[in-house]
Computed example of a mutant assay.
Amino acid sequence: MQERGQIYLNSKKQTPISWTDQEVRDYRSTFIQCSMFSFWVIFNLSDSGLGSTLTAQAGSMTSQGIPNDFFNNFNQITIVAAIPILDYIIYPLLKKMKINFKQVHKIFLGFMLGACGSMVSAILQWRVYQTSPCGYYATTCDSPSPLTAWYEIINYGLCALGECFCYTTAYELAYTRAPDNAKGLVMALFLFNSAISSAISEGVSGALVDPNLIWPFTGIAAAGGFCAIVFLVLYWNLDKVIEQEVAEREASRNVGITDAERSEIQSLVKSISR
């Protein structure tokens, strides 16, 4: 059996907190593994844009009376439509065709979709500047560009598809790789990256003004594509690593348990479940 260490938080009540060597190793490994979630900081910026740049872009285009913050609803609409298609059509079809669409491939594709969304926004912003009566000061212009604001759906749709691959896989990784008593902690560490993205977005919002709005979209697109390639290279064997971690964790649970004891425990579990 594994030796347990103890520490007393309260000298009066003598309330101990105990741990095993395997639990210490699990937590150390967990914090190291969570470093991979830092890649989602860039994806979040691709997904939501820097500050209100996407909303401002829609406002400088012809919307025929539709509010410029209306188009971000297509992000949620795309997710609701895409998830069932992926779960019940695309993934079963790939499995039937014996195509191993690994987790790292899903994340890579999601990052690339987010980068493509930002690149589309950069191209649209360039076209807005080219067609606006005020040129490179289109955001504050009284007359909008003749380009229709419905082009914004492309960005929101691509980023939403990226979420379907990136976020669902990240939640799966967070749940699978975390120890049983630290799943909430790992999920919190993953969501903390959204807070970092929001802080970056707020920090640079003052600089997001005409005539330089093309470059934020271009920079995020380049950073997103670079992160996608780096992630693919670094975590190419991610599925094998996860399988090994799960196997080691299961083995650690069975240390010191004889076959007879294991059979007795299994019989007890079955009787309780009945």
Rank of each mutant, 00 (worst) to 15 (best):
I153L: 11
V186T: 15
Y171K: 00
P133L: 07
P179N: 05
E152T: 00
E163G: 00
G162E: 02
S197T: 10
A138M: 06
E163F: 00
E163A: 06
I153D: 01
C159L: 02
V209C: 12
A188E: 01
G184Y: 05
W126I: 03
N181V: 12
E152V: 02
L173H: 05
F165L: 10
R177D: 14
L158F: 03
R127F: 10
Q130E: 07
N155S: 01
T140M: 08
N193C: 11
E172S: 15
P146W: 01
G206L: 02
F111P: 03
L113P: 00
C141Q: 06
D210F: 13
W126K: 15
A188P: 05
A195Y: 14
L208G: 07
V186K: 04
I123A: 08
I214H: 06
M187K: 00
R127L: 13
H105R: 06
S132L: 08
V104E: 04
P211H: 05
S143D: 04
G206Y: 14
D180L: 05
F101K: 05
Y136A: 13
T131P: 06
I107Y: 09
S194N: 14
N181R: 07
I123Y: 11
T168S: 12
S118M: 14
T169S: 13
R127I: 02
F101C: 07
L109G: 08
A188C: 15
I153W: 02
S143V: 08
T168Y: 09
A207R: 10
L158M: 07
G157E: 02
S201F: 12
A170N: 09
I153E: 02
D180N: 10
A170D: 07
I107A: 07
Y137I: 00
I200L: 12
K106P: 07
V204T: 09
C134Q: 00
I214W: 03
E172G: 14
W126G: 11
T140D: 15
D180I: 02
E152I: 01
A138I: 05
Y156H: 12
H105K: 09
N100T: 13
S118C: 15
L185P: 15
D210H: 09
S143I: 14
N212S: 13
S118V: 09
S197V: 04
A149E: 01
W126C: 07
N181H: 09
P211L: 09
N212A: 09
G114S: 09
A182Q: 13
G162H: 04
A195V: 05
N181L: 14
G184R: 04
T139L: 02
T148N: 13
F111S: 01
Y151A: 06
T148P: 10
L158P: 00
G135P: 05
A195P: 02
L185Y: 15
A199L: 06
S205N: 12
I200E: 10
I214N: 08
V204Y: 14
K106M: 11
F111T: 05
K106W: 11
K183V: 13
K102P: 03
H105D: 13
V209D: 08
T140R: 08
K106A: 12
K102R: 06
Q103D: 13
Y175P: 03
C141G: 07
L113M: 12
P211T: 11
I196N: 11
N155T: 03
N100Q: 13
C141R: 03
C164R: 04
A170E: 08
D180V: 07
P144C: 07
M187A: 15
G203Y: 13
S198E: 11
W150C: 04
F108K: 08
P133S: 08
Y167R: 04
R177P: 04
A207Q: 09
D210K: 12
C116V: 01
